[in-house]
Design a binder for these strands. Structure first.
Length: 313
DNA sequence: GCGACAG
DNA sequence: ATCTTGTCGC
């Protein structure tokens, strides 16, 4: 009867079993240091390797921080999980009042902030807000030491471990607050393999999810600058939203000018079990007075203040 | 082949 | 992601 979320969750060579976390009051920090840096682990992982040549681009340097083997494994993992991806509304709630359906009630959000002194030290936060009041009903956070640096195209593999802990704790402590929809900082299907962090998290935890980014991930001809130009042109006409259509004519997401005076748009893409149309509605409804949707902003503020408190003070 | 790449 | 200074607006 636990088919919704398997526990423990495993990906790649790792296993995370947050069910071990007994001291699970929300708003209580539990330090789960899963990586004991034993000198002789069988690991062939080479995180945070130093750079090599000097003629390399930033991108090459990033890419070389994990083995070919690891990247191949990650791509396989993404392509496998992608088989479960659903890009349409698969839930029984509506944003509007509807006698035959329930109303959207819980909007979740996750975010991670990193130490300025140590790339690996971070604090992740999980927030659940009541919709549409945006009142915070639940907040939890977790310190972590990341196994890998940020690799474009593989963001999920850096962030999912700590999210797993947070979601398992939510499930065991306050299952009634399980989010109807989850906002993830990062992209959903707007990704070079069509399976960004938001989709990854959505499939893994079987929750409708939406990717909300602050910049454009270049794919299928879409670029930060190109979208920027389109937005400027479109905004002159008074619009607040443009679809992100790639050279292949595929619609990858949408750029939304979320507030009247925001210079840059936010990038919305389908995560899992939701359509782009509904994703846009949800995100718009979660904008309070800032460019970033309130739940994500709360998670961001929370994790940012804690990472400062625990690592940079 | 080269360049471009969420957080 | 993180670091910066000032500046505009409620």
């Amino acid at each position: 009867m636990e088919s919704t979320n398997s526990n423990p969750v495993s990906w790649g060579e790792f296993n995370f079993d947050a069910s071990k976390e007994q001291n699970a009051d929300a708003k209580v920090i539990v330090n789960t240091d899963t990586n004991s840096q034993t000198a002789d682990s069988s690991a062939q992982k080479k995180p945070y390797q130093g750079k090599k040549g000097k003629g390399q681009s930033k991108f090459e340097k990033l890419q070389e921080q994990v083995d070919e083997e690891v990247r191949a494994k990650w791509e396989l993992e993404q392509n496998t999980l992608k088989l479960q991806l659903i890009e349409q509304d698969t839930f029984d709630w509506k944003l509007e009042k509807d006698p035959t359906k329930s109303t959207l009630r819980y909007v979740g959000a996750i975010d991670i902030s990193y130490s300025k002194n140590d790339d690996r030290k971070a604090v992740a936060a999980l927030i659940v807000c009541e919709f549409p009041s945006m009142k915070v009903l639940y907040e939890d956070f977790e310190q972590e030491t990341a196994d890998y640096p940020y690799i474009p195209g593989f963001l999920a593999f850096k962030e999912v471990p700590v999210y797993t802990i947070l979601f398992n704790r939510l499930k065991s402590n306050q299952p009634e607050l399980w989010p109807d929809v989850l906002l993830v900082d990062g992209n959903g299907i707007l990704h070079n393999r069509g399976f960004g962090c938001a989709s990854h998290v959505g499939v893994l935890f079987d929750v409708p999810s939406i990717g909300v980014g602050k910049t454009v991930f270049a794919v299928d001809g879409l670029t930060q600058l190109g979208v920027k130009e389109l937005c400027d042109k479109y905004l002159q006409k008074g619009g607040d939203l443009i679809e992100l259509v790639g050279k292949s004519s595929k619609v990858w997401g949408a750029a939304l000018r979320s507030t009247n005076d925001s210079k840059n748009p936010i990038i919305i893409s389908v995560g899992h079990r939701i359509s782009l149309e509904t994703s846009i509605k949800v995100v718009k409804s979660c904008i309070y007075k800032f460019r970033i949707p309130e739940p994500i902003r709360c998670a961001d503020l929370k994790s940012r203040s804690l990472v400062k408190k625990y690592y940079d003070s």
